[in-house]
């Protein structure tokens, strides 16, 4: 990583901060959990504390008081997907966040029916 201090506005495109995030993640550019995808939902584990967390992780944990997807959390925090994923992965391994997702091969007919009803009702 460059020794230059990250200056605000540097490397920003479309409101998303491109350079600073890699400082936030300690230089990592990929999460080591492959189960965290854009649609994966996160919820804060009841009683999870914010001790020792970075400001961004605290914000993420707060957002996860209600179920929220990684994509929505990224849009909310103004961070690129990859950075949100890395921040989330740390919170998951520390037991502060719970992961929710759906494997397409195990989707049940009743879940599909509920979706069909919801789309028809639009």
């Amino acid at each position: 990583m460059s020794a230059e201090p990250p200056s605000k506005g540097h490397g920003r495109t479309g409101g998303h901060d491109v350079v600073r995030p890699f400082v936030m993640t300690g230089g990592r550019t990929r999460a080591d959990r492959r189960d965290l995808r854009i649609e994966t939902m996160l919820t804060a584990v009841p009683g999870a504390t914010t001790s020792g967390l970075s400001a961004e992780q605290v914000k993420l944990l707060r957002l996860c008081q209600a179920p929220i997807s990684i994509a929505e959390a990224s849009a909310e925090l103004g961070l690129v997907i990859g950075v949100t994923t890395i921040l989330a992965a740390d919170l998951v391994s520390e037991g502060r966040l719970e992961v929710h997702q759906t494997d397409p091969v195990e989707i049940e007919l009743d879940v599909l029916s509920r979706m069909i009803d919801a789309v028809r009702a639009l």
Partner: peptide
């Protein structure tokens, strides 16, 4: 047309 919220925009970094 289908979303209950205006489409959100998120970004992925590409090196």
């Amino acid at each position: 047309a289908l979303s209950e919220i205006p489409p959100l925009r998120t970004e992925a970094a590409m090196t």
